[in-house]
Design a binder for these strands. Structure first.
Lengths: 208, 208
DNA sequence: CTTTCGTCGGACAGTCTGTATTTCGATGCA
DNA sequence: TGCATCGAAATACAGACTGTCCGACGAAAG
């Protein structure tokens, strides 16, 4: 039956938000401190000083928890900054600055993103929705940038805007970053210049 | 106690190899038919028409099973062909042919490799050292190729052999392939030319 | 004071990996 | 033919994990 009395939340809602945040922070902590082990609800509950059942009432399921983590990253993780960096008038400068900004954002959250992306590929439902949202935004941004590079005459001859979009998609991906950052133990700065140079040579006409 | 009687295997060993193969084939089948779901020992056993306990006596553990799968890929999957394609005298031709051969090999085994690589990143022990062996071989091959490109004067000015090795590592990776193949729904041929062109422009001096 | 509801704690079912044990039956040897 | 061997089946079991349910407590809200 519906509640028989009106009820506005003030203090209780704030407290609830805090426990929600404590749980998410516990997940971050798990992923950063022991990235090799898989994150269990029991460990998260203990770290957050929260009952295990509370996680289920707040997030519904393990998938919901990681989905919320993705949303948290999306809103407070600097993903939008990357899109903005790309939007500046000079498309070719946007290319370089977009890639470098992107790389440093990836580097700051490497362990969390690694787990999230790998989970998304192994189990589409688990974190599927969030990662796809993240990547859809990047896809649109890179297609836009490719079109603007084309319009400004910065692209190599015989390279369509479509193909340029594909290559930008590759060069701004987390996997490309991590292949160099973790796979070759390179510092973030080196990865940034390596990727930016590679993208510029692959995309842009040699002049300038 | 040790066996009290000498015992040479003929038919029995052959039969044992066949069940071993049936189990591995069942894993392939799982990964190819339902790549989204995770592979459980029970499903593999049913597909292979084998008792679940048999899988454990043959492979020891789930990790051992996937490790064996990786070894199977390594020996019968065309990984060595890629290395050979790179070894031809003309390093620059080796670059193109290595990348295209690589891409088609990845495309033929996409679902299996996707699962294997993602598992390796989530849980280092899960697939044992197989993925690392695979990748170590590729790393050595790409470093060699980078050195030979350098020695033959094919590299752009101001690009060291080390940096060239990093970029080859990226352009011949499964992730780079899959970002374009699955992430952008491109046919393997397109992926191959896209990656080969990108690598050539990123690495080689513009002439020729 | 009463109602509401976030949180707790625990019990419980279901799934999965991994282990141990027993049994069956075909193969190999004398 | 008779006996030893060993691959495989079948099954029960322990342990870890996710997910559900329910009853209870206590602080905030009316």
């Amino acid at each position: 039956m519906p509640p028989t009395r009106k009820y506005e939340q003030r203090l209780r809602a704030k407290a609830a938000d805090q426990t929600r945040r404590r749980i998410l922070d516990a997940v971050y902590q798990c992923l950063i401190e022991t990235p090799s082990e898989q994150v269990g609800m029991d460990k998260v509950a203990k770290l957050a000083e929260v009952s295990r059942s509370t996680i289920y009432t707040v997030f519904g399921s393990r998938a919901g928890l990681f989905d919320a983590l993705g949303m948290d990253l999306l809103h407070h993780g600097g993903f939008t900054d990357m899109v903005n960096a790309v939007l500046q008038p000079d498309a070719r400068r946007g290319l370089r600055e977009g890639i470098t900004g992107n790389v440093h954002m990836y580097a700051a959250r490497r362990d969390v993103l690694r787990t999230l992306y790998s989970m998304a590929q192994l189990d589409a439902d688990a974190v599927g929705g969030t990662v796809r949202r993240l990547e859809d935004g990047r896809a649109r941004g890179m297609n836009d940038l490719a079109q603007r590079l084309h319009d400004q005459g910065a692209l190599r001859d015989q390279l369509t805007a479509d193909h340029a979009g594909h290559l930008l998609w590759l060069h701004t991906s987390f996997d490309a970053f991590d292949l160099l950052f973790s796979g070759r133990s390179l510092p973030a700065d080196t990865v940034a210049t390596l990727l930016a140079d590679a993208a510029e040579h692959a995309l842009c006409r040699p002049g300038t």
